[in-house]
Design a protein around this nucleic acid. Structure first.
Lengths: 116, 116
DNA sequence: AATAGTACCTTGCAATATACGATACCTTGT
DNA sequence: ACAAGGTATCGTATATTGCAAGGTACTATT
């Protein structure tokens, strides 16, 4: 899926946290899951997961795979849940703000300037 | 307005183009207008306008101001209009994709794995 | 043994928002 | 005349982050 790279900045963090809020996932799985809606590559997710772990938003545990190397599953911490809720709120405000700019009547401040 | 910095990456370009599609604006004015919905600083908009001009999406012309230094107005070119339309579409797809991830039922691929 | 799919990870690059500062014009107050 | 503050522009340096490219390693299939 071709997609504006810049749009994703910061949003992928939200997507990962939102995904993990539903179920524990391993990295490779998240790429698949998220890719159904917005494109993401492995080179993005692994550094991101590492960062989220360093910041205490997730923990990880290993589990054997039936076909391949062991999978590293990630689970949201309480802190991660809070972070996710905060980001969801921020995303709502932000996307609403953008949509206002794109679609709403422009608020022009010229109401007090009369024709002459 | 406090706001996630990363969310804005790339979207401000869209906002500026959308604003200019309605009316010619000067930089300082755009900061005011956009700030009603999403926070933005002057240090952001001027480099952005310069880039948009270099890429041929806008042209600029000077106009005296009743109070202050002359204003540099920006106007969308045909190329800029196309770019704006494209970005609006991309934004629509993108934000829809994110909302799917945040709010929709998760599509789990475990339907063929039975309890045992 | 060779290939392909799964799964993990790192390095280096590119894009871009912002802080910070510089420049310059105008008005108002002292 | 001078200082202060609002209006308006522009440039530089920095931090964050997504991604391509590459590597490692395990399993199953050919």
């Amino acid at each position: 899926m071709v997609m504006n790279t810049q749009f994703k900045k910061g949003v992928l963090e939200l997507c990962v946290l939102a995904l993990l809020d539903r179920k524990d996932c391993y990295g490779y799985e998240m790429v698949d899951e998220i890719s159904k809606n917005i494109s993401i590559s492995e080179g993005t997710i692994y550094p991101l997961l590492k960062r989220l772990k360093n910041e205490g938003f997730v923990i990880s545990y290993l589990k054997e795979s039936p076909d391949g190397p062991p999978r590293k599953y990630y689970r949201l911490t309480d802190l991660g849940k809070k972070k996710k809720d905060k980001l969801v709120d921020e995303w709502g405000e932000f996307s609403m703000g953008v949509n206002n700019l794109l679609y709403s009547k422009i608020t022009n401040n010229l109401g007090d300037i009369k024709d002459e």
